[in-house]
């Protein structure tokens, strides 16, 4: 993106990564994007009682072009999916996504044709947050989890290497449709999170040996 991407790997780049990570995580601006009941809790986080401004996020951006974080709050219907994707595409890099609530994360109790079974089918998700809806503290917890991720994100050649590693891990992982037997095997053994390549690991309804 900037000059920090041109730095050679090593001590200098590591330091710049730490500084850039600290700067980025300290002012993540969320996009105003509420889809359902979870949005009520998301609004509650903005009130003085929970005060999202303590994390440098006081400004819920009304335009995706000035937002860094998309909080997908609520179930994503098939009709809304292209809109979600377009809003995500309009956000400038670097950008992050929190999938708030079970409906956005996996479809939740709406296991039917109208609802996208997990928003990670259309956009890459960084943090999944359970709950129906999650209480405001849970959203704050998800934001803190995301802050840790941002702090440790890579730049330049390290970023390329991390992306390569994530892609290799995603290619090596067992596809969901090939998972058989008990789900514990799929969930427990060497799963790696690949940004943007994680599709539908919701295997709770798979076959049983």
């Amino acid at each position: 993106m900037g000059i920090e991407e041109k730095l050679p790997a090593g001590f200098l780049l590591t330091t710049v990564e730490q500084v850039a990570g600290y700067m980025r995580k300290s002012s993540v601006w969320p996009a105003t994007f509420g889809l359902a009941c979870c949005a009520i809790e998301m609004m509650a986080v903005g009130t003085p009682d929970y005060d999202i401004a303590r994390f440098g996020m006081e400004r819920f951006s009304a335009t995706p072009r000035q937002a860094d974080l998309m909080i997908v709050a609520g179930r994503v219907s098939q009709k809304m999916a292209p809109v979600v994707r377009q809003v995500y595409d309009q956000m400038p890099e670097p950008k992050w996504v929190i999938s708030m609530g079970v409906c956005a994360s996996s479809g939740g109790m709406f296991n039917n044709y109208a609802i996208v079974q997990g928003v990670d089918h259309i956009i890459p998700v960084d943090v999944y947050l359970p709950g129906c809806p999650p209480r405001p503290e849970m959203l704050l917890n998800a934001i803190i989890t995301l802050h840790e991720q941002i702090q440790n994100s890579k730049l330049g050649v390290n970023r390329v290497a991390a992306a390569r590693a994530a892609e290799a891990a995603a290619l090596a992982a067992t596809p969901t449709h090939q998972m058989t037997g008990l789900l514990a095997q799929g969930a427990g053994s060497g799963h790696t999170h690949a940004h943007g390549h994680l599709h539908g690991t919701d295997v709770s309804h798979g076959g049983v040996a």
């Binding site: 994360s105 709950g131 209480r135 969930a187 994680l198 295997v203």
Partner: peptide, 15 residues
């Protein structure tokens, strides 16, 4: 206990 956020779907299937 409510702090359950995680970065992937598989780890949120509790065994």
């Amino acid at each position: 206990f409510y702090e359950l956020a995680d970065n992937n779907r598989a780890d949120l299937i509790f065994t």
